[in-house]
Write a protein that binds this DNA or RNA. Structure first.
Length: 923
RNA sequence: GCCCGGAUGGUGGAAUGGUAGACACGAAGGACUUAAAAUCCUUUGGCUAUUGCAGCUGUGCGGGUUCAAGUCCCGCUCCGGGUACCA
């Protein structure tokens, strides 16, 4: 009987389905383990061979944990809302739901072929009303909350109203967009409309005027993590800055907790570091600079309070609210021209140019320490969104200020002993401070660090500033001017103020529209819906939520996917708690993985969930890149020359479909059939073969390097695909897909099969295993257990190969050995394992077997090989009976006949004996 | 610019400070076969010797610590990823 993967895989996939093998229920008698994959966006292109990499890794771990007796939750679903489906809908008129569901069906079909142990009864699609009800529900809770800075958590907004009624805005312990000032009496006299407007400044989900990344081509705003280098991540269209009234989530309030709690989770250092940078903690000082002849002060933020004596000018962001107050009559025209110019530059243009530009406001500020007058400029190198949108410029010690000062001929005053600022600024935070003392403050002679500390104390005491922590992390912009997303559960009341729907009105269903485009008046697509009003007849919000809304709490819903009364019941959440192992790509480091943590923390604040962090351990699988192949056409001919001969010709490389190339050798007949124009192509061969060139590129249709997992499954089987993807290299490493080694893994499975079957006959017998076979097996148990725990699957596969070769060589047919071997293999290659398991006479699924435990006794050797080295250089080996003492080993090594030769008659100075390893003799 | 990774044969990659190159691919040679495929066996870092055992050298470069360094420390080079007028 030959190893027939098609037969085997079909049969056992059917068996698992019929027996509900992977169905999971809460079971308080067993310890739980929650393994999760980042759910995919079902794109039209289907899965390529890179997608399953992480899924296979998590599947192995899930199966392993289950065999160890854990109750494993391992679900899968789809991140179904997204731009591509909508773009496709705009082009074709096809409803995004239709294409999304088709894509999901395709994904499911592909996933099923690989033999994953997902509990599909828990499947989630983010576009289903029963799911997005809870996305909307969470939003309404955020709307009804503010962030209490004293308790460092979200609290009901009603508490804030009570506070205002009693105290006004004085020392309000709430995270607000702006600092508002009013008394209790004023608050109590405000109309409801005015009160609402004030509360909006504090809500966790709030409407605010914010600078947004506006993508005109996509017709929507984008979050910071959806933009890279001035273009949209999806589609690569230019993005510009625009002030818009948008829904936002007060993620920035959680910056401190998001930062600190990174220390409590097991993520890779690199991804934690990426998040730390994105959150961008910086401790500094906020300082007030009086403005000459005006009754107000400029507030700035700096981390270099020590450089106050070197401030020779100040700069405002073009969008800063100070601009209007500081521009003098004679400068008005120049400033307006500049602001206009800046506004029309996109982020991308600003970045590419990097040219110094700016204008003088006409006003002067007063340095609060030196009392000197300093000019105030406007320039686009200062960002409105960070700090206070205004800076004190210290050209001697900041390269950007330096460039600006040089350009406008402003003073540069060095403040560090011995630094040279004639060519460039001295940015390092080190050295001894000079030029920095007067009757108010003396910093000369101090180190930079000391000077910063002293200045902070001074400005606090003098009442000209305070110590302040700033975060780079911005609030998340939560509105999208799109159709294919969750509708906001929001209507606008008679004052045109937003109100959230009651829980019993959720979910608010996504309405039908005639076209998926903005309305003629420029409203988002929902403006086209008929009768888009709440029960009370008031108009509903026209924006929809962004992609990350649905993916922020999906891991909670898997725990209790059918619950109609809660996102997840408290009891169920108490059992499953949080994700123990999360597997996915690094590309979500600053998006989904921040938003999810934020969302979870918000729910945690109200006790809706019991864990403060959603994902305990995170493994990032690397990307699988494409490996493209090229043929080389001699210019102006239809003749193709083989790779190593191309240097003699003038050739054009042409991408060729990797599916008609094998081990870089072109299948000439298939090539001719591939494209009509190659029908009568001619070839210059080497050694009778046409060898192709290759390059590592992104896997994409246009490079003809997409490898479909279905094709691999068809030819080699799912088990080979699974083993091979793991064998390719460390899971976290990116690597090109290269089919050149898949035969080796396939051969291994055939060899394994050959151990069980000779011809039609099953040869495994109930007989006692030899010591030799037991040793081989237990070596494997130890290695594979260790490797799985450390996600080192590639070395596990190697270990299987070695073990099978050893068993083959010793002609082992003992069932005792193969029972355990099959269980060990089950996580990696479940189909063949299940087949062999049943062949061994077991009635139940191998998924319910017990993971074997290594018995160290079998591994003990009768004798141990010591490498004898001289001055660190290994020379020969000796065998020593196991358990020999260090001293005895030393004696035996020195007494060995070969030792005399290497010691050259000298007496050893020192002998080091490393147990079971090495004897090093120093001469 | 800053932050984080990485560099080991023709290739993918192994190696708790302890005999570098496991395992696999590819290649070469051989067996079986009329032949091919499949399968099996041998060799396979480099250099020298291979009519002998063997010897030397070797983990991007330059130093250091150590009895012993691919591994630890210092200084570079190159490659990959993230991020950026963040004051």
């Amino acid at each position: 009987m030959e190893y027939n993967h098609k037969d085997i895989e079909k049969r056992w996939q059917q068996y698992w389905k019929e027996n509900n093998t992977y169905k999971t229920e809460v079971d308080k008698n067993r310890p739980k383990y929650y393994v999760l994959d980042m759910f995919p966006y079902p794109s039209g292109a289907g899965l390529h061979v890179g997608h399953p990499l992480g899924y296979i890794a998590s599947d192995i771990f899930s199966r392993y944990k289950r065999l160890q007796g854990f109750n494993v939750l391992h679900p899968m679903g789809y991140d179904a809302y997204g731009l591509p489906a909508e773009q496709y809908a705009i082009q074709t008129g096809q409803h995004p739901e239709v294409t999304t569901m088709q894509n999901i069906a395709r994904y499911r079909e592909q996933l099923d072929k690989i033999g994953f142990c997902y509990d599909w009864s828990r499947e989630i699609k983010t576009c289903e009303p029963s799911y997005y009800k809870w996305t909307q529900w969470a939003f309404t809770r955020m709307f009804k909350s503010y962030f209490n800075t004293k308790l460092n958590k979200a609290c009901p907004i009603s508490e804030l109203e009570e506070y205002f009624a009693a105290n006004g805005s004085k020392e309000v312990p709430a995270h607000g967009t702006e600092e508002l000032v009013f008394t209790a009496d004023e608050w109590n006299a405000y109309s409801q409309k005015e009160k609402n407007e004030i509360l909006m400044n504090y809500r966790i989900a709030y409407l605010g005027n914010t600078m947004v990344n506006w993508c005109p081509k996509l017709g929507t705003v984008l979050a910071n993590d959806e933009v890279s280098e001035g273009v949209s991540l999806r589609g690569g269209y230019p993005v510009e800055q625009k002030l818009m009234y948008q829904w936002c989530l007060r993620v920035s309030a959680y910056a401190g907790r998001l930062l600190n709690d990174l220390d409590t989770i097991e993520w890779s250092d690199s991804i934690k570091e990426t998040q730390r940078n994105w959150i961008g903690y910086s401790e500094g000082a906020e300082m007030l600079f009086p403005v000459e002849g005006k009754d107000f002060q400029l507030k700035i933020f700096t981390t270099r309070a020590d450089t106050i004596f070197g401030v020779t000018f100040m700069v405002l962001a073009p969008e800063s609210e100070y601009v209007n107050q500081l521009v003098t009559a004679e400068q008005k025209e120049t400033v307006e021209a500049y602001l206009d110019e800046v506004k029309h530059k996109t982020e991308r243009e600003r970045m590419i140019e990097k040219k110094v530009s700016g204008v003088f406001t006409g006003s002067y500020a007063i340095n609060p320490i030196t009392g000197k007058n300093i000019p105030v400029y406007i320039s686009d190198y200062v960002l409105a969104g960070y700090g206070t949108g205004a800076i004190m410029a210290v050209p001697a010690h900041d390269s950007r200020d330096y460039a600006f000062a040089k350009h406008f001929g402003l003073d540069i005053v060095p403040l560090i002993e011995g630094c040279d600022v004639s060519e460039e600024s001295f940015d390092a935070k080190e050295g001894i401070v000079t030029n920095s003392s007067n009757e108010r403050l003396q910093l000369n002679g101090l180190t930079v660090k000391e000077a910063i500390a002293k200045t902070k104390i001074y400005i606090k005491e003098a009442g000209i500033g305070k110590v302040k922590v700033n975060y780079r992390l911005r609030d998340a912009i939560f509105s999208r001017q799109r159709y294919w997303g969750e509708p906001f559960p929001v209507y606008y009341d008679e004052n045109n103020q937003p109100q959230v729907l009651n829980d019993d009105e959720l979910p608010l269903l996504l309405p039908e529209v005639d076209k998926f485009l903005p309305t003629e008046t420029g409203e988002p697509p929902l403006g086209r819906a008929n009768n888009w009003v709440a029960k009370n007849g008031r108009p509903l919000e026209l924006n929809t939520m962004p992609g990350f809304a649905g993916s922020s709490a999906y891991y909670l819903r898997y725990m209790d996917p059918k619950n109609e009364n809660a996102l997840v019941s408290l009891e169920t959440n108490e059992y499953w708690r949080s994700v123990d192992l999360y597997v996915g790509g690094t590309e979500h480091a600053t998006g989904h993985l921040i938003y999810s943590r934020f969302w979870n923390k918000f729910l945690y604040d109200y006790g809706f969930v019991c864990e403060p962090e959603p994902f305990k351990k995170l493994i990032n699988q690397g990307m699988i890149q494409g490996r493209s192949n090229f043929v080389y056409r001699i210019k102006d001919t239809n003749t193709f020359v083989s790779y190593n001969l191309k240097k003699d010709y003038d050739v054009t490389p042409i991408h060729v479909d990797v599916n008609i190339v094998s081990n870089d050798v072109l299948d000439i007949e298939k090539f001719k059939a591939w494209r009509p124009e190659f029908n009568n192509a001619e070839f210059i061969l080497e050694d009778g073969k046409y060898v192709c060139g290759y390059a590592v590129e992104k896997m994409s249709k246009s490079m003809f390097n997409v490898v479909n997992p279905d094709d691999i499954v068809e030819v080699y089987g799912a088990d080979t695909l699974r083993l091979y993807e793991m064998f390719l290299g460390p899971i976290e490493q990116s690597k090109p897909w290269d089919t050149n080694g898949i035969d080796g893994v396939n051969r291994f499975l055939k060899r394994l099969w050959g151990l069980f079957f000779k011809g039609e006959e099953m040869v495994i017998k109930e007989e006692k295993a030899s010591q030799e076979a037991l040793k081989s097996l237990h070596k494997l148990i130890k290695k594979v257990t260790f490797d799985i725990e450390h996600f080192s699957y590639n070395t596990s596969v190697s270990a299987f190969m070695i073990c099978v070769n050893e068993l083959n060589a010793m002609k082992c047919v003992s069932k005792e050995i193969y029972d355990d071997l099959v269980v060990l293999l089950a996580p990696f290659a479940p189909h063949i394992a299940e087949e062999l398991w049943h062949s061994l006479g077991h009635e139940t699924s191998v998924c319910d077997a017990k993971w074997p435990v290594c018995n160290e006794e079998y591994l003990v050797e009768a004798s141990v090989n010591y490498a004898i080295s001289f001055n660190g250089k290994a020379r020969f080996n000796i065998a020593v009976p196991n358990g020999t003492s260090k001293e005895e080993v030393e004696k035996m090594a020195l007494a060995h006949e070969s030792s005399a030769k290497w010691m050259e008659g000298k007496t050893p100075k020192k002998v080091i004996v490393v147990p079971n390893k090495i004897v090093n003799i120093v001469i």
